[in-house]
Design a protein around this nucleic acid. Structure first.
Lengths: 208, 208
DNA sequence: AAAGATATTGACACCATATCAACTTCTTTT
DNA sequence: AAAAGAAGTTGATATGGTGTCAATATCTTT
């Protein structure tokens, strides 16, 4: 008979996929309940009703790889904001776009509050997870920087010697900080208040 | 004879102080060479030529307490910037003061580059060290917020409904992020360029 | 000299990670 | 259908760190 390497009926593959899924599902719950550090591979494998070593065959990177797999879908949604339309032609337009983007950003922080709380902990604890986050940030900063450059070229800005990255940082890093504050429940400010003040500061700081 | 609890000649105290000093000196070098996580109590006690347990009698909080003791003197210098004069009466004055403060802040980042690199790692790894840093940040934000409120009361600002903390965050959080970038050598921008763009953004964003 | 106080010490219990050789289960070959 | 091979599972184990503690040494006071 012909060898079917991708035979969907292969019971071993099916079993493997099942284990993998159980690991991810169990880990997700445990991470949210106990956080990143407190959750151990022993806990995950027990909850998933699999052997200890099985977690490592599916995720050789251990806890970090399991967590990254789980958090990726959350990050995807954030990326969508970064990939949205940014180009503007006037100060007024910029204010509207900026404010809306910050609001969407902060809304996601509320939506994924529990997951982000764990991510925040994990960023501090794991080098690889931190790297992933830095990559994410970089994309945002690049996106905003490009826009600042465009505005400068169009002569819309106050100065011609602004450093686009620093300007982008004003918007993004402050927004990021407030995103964490929202996720970690370290502020009771309304997300619209934050978005309004930040957008005003950014737009009036940059545009003439 | 009278009991002298604070007898400077007490050889046990002297010996104890000596051990304590050796622990701190050894730890400082090791932290800078290997970072926070990689440096172990075993390494410190070995380098300090003391018994393993001795480190814990002097620093019951272990590695975290040792590190906090070392880093405190660095933080003191940063606090001095926060405690400096901030009050301003005009936009022009604010620009000068703000730019100078950012520059001093970034200069300290260069001065204590090696220590801050370890601190950055430790903030992510240790809850207590993170708390200390948050405390430090809080003081800065409060200081800047007060100043924003004053400017608003004096009618110097663009809007009356700015959230002072968010406005303060624009300045501080961006400054903080660039401080880490400088310390971690993640940017090759000149500190004056950063200070200039950031101060311009902040002052023009806030003041009318 | 005895009692007490202070500081030192390293063996040890503890806990989490990552590995691996043995094993089970399923598929392919002959 | 039996043998060989591939895929996935398993938990005992090595490793490496932390923090504790009972024993001990050193110095001071009674």
């Amino acid at each position: 008979m012909i060898k079917l390497t991708h035979n969907l009926e292969d019971k071993r593959k099916v079993r493997g996929e099942h284990s993998r899924t159980k690991i991810l599902e169990s880990a997700k719950k445990l991470f949210i309940e106990f956080g990143f550090k407190e959750t151990t591979i022993a806990m995950v494998s027990k909850k998933a009703s699999i052997g200890y070593g099985t977690a490592y065959t599916h995720f050789p990177g251990g806890k970090e790889e399991i967590f990254l797999t789980i958090i990726k879908e959350v990050l995807e949604e954030f990326y969508q904001i970064a990939n949205g339309e940014f180009t503007v032609n006037s100060k007024e337009e910029s204010l509207a776009v900026t404010q809306r983007n910050i609001e969407n950003f902060l809304k996601l922080a509320i939506k994924y509050q529990l997951a982000l709380k764990v991510l925040h902990e994990a960023i501090g604890l794991s080098h690889i997870i931190n790297e992933n986050w830095q990559n994410f940030i970089k994309k945002f900063i690049e996106r905003i920087s490009d826009n600042v450059k465009q505005a400068m070229e169009k002569g819309l800005t106050r100065h011609k010697d602004f450093d686009p990255e620093v300007v982008a940082g004003v918007l993004f890093y402050t927004g990021e900080k407030y995103m964490w504050k929202v996720a970690l429940k370290q502020t009771d400010k309304d997300y619209r208040v934050i978005a309004s003040s930040l957008a005003q500061m950014y737009v009036n700081g940059l545009y003439r």
